[in-house]
């Protein structure tokens, strides 16, 4: 058989075959303008984070969110996110007095990336848009015109918006879209912050020992004596559910809790179980901050739970009553354990 090929042609065909045959992306190589994907390092024992397909985590998005979180550029009143989420209080605020007259303890921004619902009543189910309302008069009182100008004139933000979201000119996107992108970046930043270095975490990882008071408190917390673990389940120290813990005897206004959102009778007085991580730093306690100290909280669970029909069955204890009847020493021990959940490293993240 004779094939009409000479050496040169054969070599060309060979090289051409190699070059073209498997080529899948035949466009010229371009400079990568996409943001850098970021993956949360999930600590052992933690559930998978609640990620968002509409707002994937990126290094640049997190960086933008981190800068905006503490920057008053978003407001006309000098406020930033950190005005109501103070680091010293584990990114919470003792009490916020709203214009509507509602007085509430601002929930801590801690391990939010693992939560499914937000705020005491679960009024928000999406972290990505949680900050959208913060531009209102009551919080940032944002003036769109001023915000556009300030952002455009800033030495870093225009680049970060471009890198994070591909927005080459901030001034050309509608205000609603700008708010959304700001909220997205804040959500990315909050998702990236993980508290996992409390003394009790170190104890779990065999890197620290508990003292006697703390250990006895640990036993109380995790046994039927204190019965705290049913709602404050490890490692997030919240079961991510709503409970009526018997803190109120009458139900009007904010005290209606989850019922304000669901309109269901069975949700009367229920609130989202708050995390106990950094609980030492987030006084006062309960949705309305009615207890000033952990001592008052423990006293309440020991002897003060309300006796009304809406209180969660979990508040009925071993003795058939809603009282733990802890001794003075047991209360001291329990509080000592609660303080082992403090993670000061988190405050610097």
């Amino acid at each position: 058989m004779y094939l009409p090929l000479n050496k040169n042609i054969t070599g060309f065909v060979f090289i051409a075959s190699l070059f073209f045959a498997c080529k899948q992306n035949d466009t010229p190589k371009q400079v990568n303008t996409y943001p850098t994907p970021y993956e949360i390092s999930v600590p052992p024992g933690f559930p998978k984070p609640e990620l968002s397909s509409i707002n994937p985590l990126t290094v640049e998005g997190i960086q933008l969110g981190k800068m905006l979180y503490s920057d008053s550029i978003l407001s006309t009143n000098g406020r930033s996110c950190t005005s109501c989420h103070l680091a010293i209080n584990s990114f919470s605020l003792p009490i916020f007095n709203s214009w509507s007259g509602r007085k509430f303890s601002v929930p801590a921004h801690i391990n939010l990336g693992f939560k499914k619902q937000y705020n005491w009543e679960g009024s928000q189910e999406c972290l990505d848009t949680l900050a959208m309302d913060d531009f209102d008069q009551e919080f940032f009182n944002t003036n769109p015109e001023i915000l556009y100008k300030k952002l455009a004139a800033h030495p870093i933000y225009p680049t970060l918006f471009n890198q994070a979201f591909g927005i080459s000119d901030i001034s050309k996107i509608p205000f609603q879209e700008l708010k959304r992108k700001i909220a997205y970046s804040l959500a990315q930043y909050l998702r990236s912050k993980v508290s996992v270095n409390s003394k009790f975490d170190q104890y779990r990882n065999k890197k620290a020992l508990l003292n006697n008071l703390e250990y006895e408190g640990y036993v109380i917390f995790y046994s039927e004596k204190g019965d705290c673990f049913h709602c404050h389940s490890e490692p997030l120290y919240t079961d991510q559910q709503f409970h009526n813990n018997g803190v109120s005897n009458t139900y009007v206004g904010f005290d209606l809790g989850r019922q304000n959102i669901s309109n269901k009778e069975e949700d009367k007085g229920k609130f989202f179980t708050p995390t106990l991580r950094n609980i030492e730093l987030t006084a006062p306690y309960m949705h309305d901050g009615r207890f000033k100290t952990l001592q008052e909280v423990v006293d309440f669970y020991s002897e003060g739970v309300a006796e009304n029909q809406y209180v969660d069955p979990l508040m009925t204890k071993r003795n058939g009553t809603r009282k733990l009847n802890l001794t003075t020493l047991e209360k001291i021990q329990l509080i000592a354990f609660l303080k082992t959940l403090t993670d000061l490293d988190y405050l610097n993240k």
């Binding site: 094939l3 090929l5 000479n6 054969t10 060979f14 075959s17 190699l18 045959a21």
Partner: peptide
């Protein structure tokens, strides 16, 4: 030439 031709087809 035949070898290279067949080889290139094989690679392909």
């Amino acid at each position: 030439g035949l070898f290279l031709w067949l080889f290139s087809i094989l690679i392909f």
